[in-house]
């Protein structure tokens, strides 16, 4: 049998140890793949939290979607800090009752609120954007100036009215994100899609979104595996050039695979009776618990509106 084997395979590598050659660079490829891994991880975490035995998990997705739409309107109607804080507290209690991991849940919300709420709104608190009672001066000129359509006052700083506006806007963003994340972490993606039918979104569009989501996760997995396969054969640092070449090759591969998978799915649909119109399975009737929770959430919303 040994005659089969090329002679170089019979040579044993020198045993013993290795020479220290310094740290290998982390390629941009690894960083990019890390983000794809995070996307898969998020999907897993959501799936895991939707299957817990919490308060909102047991409620029909249609009730939750209507609750979300109703409260998004309430969040945008309330313009005072007290009401906005009350809404935040209400969502916090719902998150606890739904057994969500609070730190993980609020980490992303706070980051997004800081970037898309606070940072974006902050310049509007300056007296350059809107006049008001100066509470926090930050820069002083010798005299006031006119610049295009703006009036630059002698002292630039944050105004009381401006800071109030920033606080309200930040709280609104925070509440809207908390509400969306609350639904996403207590309802599985296919259920959300089905529930969107209450807004008369066409079934075809829902099917396409559902398939896209499934494909994204599927190809993220393939991509992760391809990277591991590359890593297992990587003996030296990967240069940027060769990483780019590898990516180009793999994009072609994924493209081909997507096309092939698309054709296969279509054939499977045809063989199972698809003839044009799409029919998504219908929901069961709402139960007593769904009605009770729905009524409670509706009354809570009305109460917050009234306050």
């Amino acid at each position: 049998m040994r005659d089969w084997i090329p002679s170089f395979l019979l040579v044993r590598p020198s045993l013993g140890s290795f020479r220290l050659e310094g740290k290998a660079k982390i390629s941009f490829l690894e960083k990019g793949l890390h983000h794809i891994g995070e996307a898969i991880s998020t999907a897993y975490r959501q799936w895991e939290s939707t299957s817990r035995n919490g308060f909102l998990q047991g409620v029909d997705a249609r009730v939750k979607i209507l609750f979300m739409a109703f409260f998004l309107v309430i969040v945008s109607l309330k313009r005072d800090i007290g009401s906005a804080t009350l809404i935040s507290l209400f969502f916090f209690v719902l998150a606890i009752l739904s057994q969500l991991k609070i730190t993980y849940f609020y980490r992303k919300i706070l980051f997004l609120t800081f970037v898309f709420g606070f940072l974006i709104a902050l310049p509007s608190a300056l007296n350059v954007a809107r006049e008001g009672e100066l509470v926090l001066p930050i820069f002083h000129f010798s005299k006031s100036r006119e610049l295009w359509i703006y009036h630059i006052p002698e002292t630039i700083g944050f105004t009381k009215e401006g800071l109030h506006g920033v606080a309200v806007l930040t709280l609104r963003v925070f509440n809207s994100l908390s509400l969306s994340f609350l639904i996403l972490h207590t309802t599985s993606f296919p259920e959300i899609l089905k529930a969107l039918r209450v807004f008369k979104i066409p079934d075809t569009l829902l099917l396409i979104i559902g398939l896209s989501y499934k494909y994204f996760l599927l190809f993220a997995r393939i991509l992760e595996e391809m990277y591991l396969a590359k890593k297992s054969r990587l003996i030296r640092d990967l240069s940027h050039g060769s990483a780019r070449k590898w990516i180009a090759g793999r994009i072609t591969f994924i493209f081909g695979k997507t096309q092939q998978r698309g054709e296969e799915v279509f054939k499977a649909m045809l063989s199972r009776g698809f003839s044009g119109p799409i029919h998504i399975s219908v929901f069961a009737k709402l139960g007593r618990w769904d009605w009770s929770v729905g009524t409670f959430l509706f009354l809570a919303g009305v109460l917050i509106l009234w306050i």
Binding site: P13, S17, F18, E21, K23, A24, I26, R236, D237
Partner: peptide, 13 residues
């Protein structure tokens, strides 16, 4: 595995 020498030692074996 971040150490170049070890990565080479391990991956080629």
């Amino acid at each position: 595995l971040k150490e170049k020498g070890f990565m080479r030692f391990f991956r080629e074996r």
